[in-house]
């Protein structure tokens, strides 16, 4: 495995493991100390552990802002008045029960929403000071800046691993000087280089599910996006692969803004700096609460957030 070659990665993994196991130990301690709701503690501790490890994120600029987003499918109102900022150098997790519009929301951010024939939209998505839905905006340029990783690993079946990573250049018709250098750096950043460096000319479908998903991450990195949207990137993967992808997310977040939709609250607590909680009460989905991940899991302002993160519903 790659970890032997890369001691930093190994340490990272051990730490994240101890976060999970350590949280249970402190959970018991905390329960004896005071009588706060039990199940929220482990997540809070995970979030705390992360905060103490990576520190408060260094917010350099507002990369992407959603302003008063509403969305419809046909006459069904699915999102109501969502405003959320995403900062460069941070990871934002979107949590909430199925069907509350999280995926719809992130697809709005890179204009994938419009592929659904009945879709409609209101509000603004500001990227670098400009609304991506302005008329005259080149939608392909937006998608170059705002990359996306899908729920199911979807490497292009007709392409080799190498071609898959570089496919963004071909698709967007970009010219670059040193393709091999870019190939290696993308695969390294996605944490896949050591596993595939000797089989770059094999087809992407020959990789395991977790490797395929990291290949898809490498593919979206090749066009150098400012923002990476991830729609439940680990929902189809085993715990080991999930951990590798979480490491990748952590390493990537230094240089870009990452938005991750997840149903796994442990994961949200482990990887994110900020968390947004979406909920639909039968009507359109709303952003119930957003804030630093630590606050959402330790000290939520809303009763419904507390109920959700402590597993009382949803």
């Amino acid at each position: 495995m790659s970890n032997q070659d890369n001691p930093a990665t190994t340490n990272d993994r051990e730490e994240s493991m101890s976060q999970v196991t350590g949280s249970q130990a402190s959970n018991t301690k905390d329960r004896n100390a005071n009588s706060r709701p039990i199940s929220s503690h482990s997540l809070a501790d995970v979030a705390n552990a992360r905060l103490s490890k990576v520190g408060t994120p260094n917010i350099s600029s507002t990369g992407l802002e959603a302003r008063g987003i509403h969305a419809w499918f046909g006459s069904k109102h699915v999102l109501e008045d969502i405003s959320l900022d995403f900062f460069t150098g941070t990871v934002t997790a979107l949590i909430g029960p199925s069907g509350c519009g999280k995926s719809t929301f992130i697809r709005i951010l890179n204009r994938m929403h419009e592929f659904i024939p009945t879709a409609a939209l209101a509000g603004q998505v500001i990227l670098d000071g400009k609304d991506v839905y302005d008329s005259g905006v080149d939608v392909t340029k937006i998608r170059l800046k705002v990359g996306m990783v899908f729920q199911k690993p979807n490497p292009f079946p007709s392409m080799t691993i190498k071609e898959n990573v570089l496919s963004g250049l071909k698709l967007a018709q970009l010219k670059i000087e040193n393709a091999d250098e870019l190939l290696e750096s993308c695969l390294r950043r996605a944490g896949l280089w050591d596993e595939v460096k000797d089989r770059l000319n094999e087809y992407g479908g020959a990789l395991s599910g977790g490797q395929q998903q990291r290949l898809c991450i490498a593919r979206s990195l090749a066009v150098n996006p400012q923002v990476l949207l991830m729609d439940e990137p680990c929902s189809a993967l085993d715990p080991g692969s999930t951990l590798r992808i979480e490491e990748t997310i952590r390493e990537l977040s230094a240089t870009m803004s990452i938005v991750i939709v997840t149903h796994n609250m442990q994961q949200a607590a482990r990887v994110s700096d900020y968390t947004g909680f979406f909920l639909s009460d039968g009507g359109p989905g709303r952003l119930i609460e957003s804030g630093s991940t630590n606050d959402i899991f330790t000290n939520p302002k809303e009763k419904r957030t507390e109920d959700y993160v402590s597993g009382r519903f949803g």
Binding site: F115, R143, N154, F156, S158, G168, A172
Partner: peptide, 22 residues
């Protein structure tokens, strides 16, 4: 699969480019 088309489009390709390359 629709996934592949979306992956192509999400990489900043035009529709024709996605069809031709993916």
């Amino acid at each position: 699969p629709q996934d592949l088309r979306e992956a192509g489009l999400a990489l900043g390709a035009t529709q024709w480019r996605t069809v031709a390359t993916v």
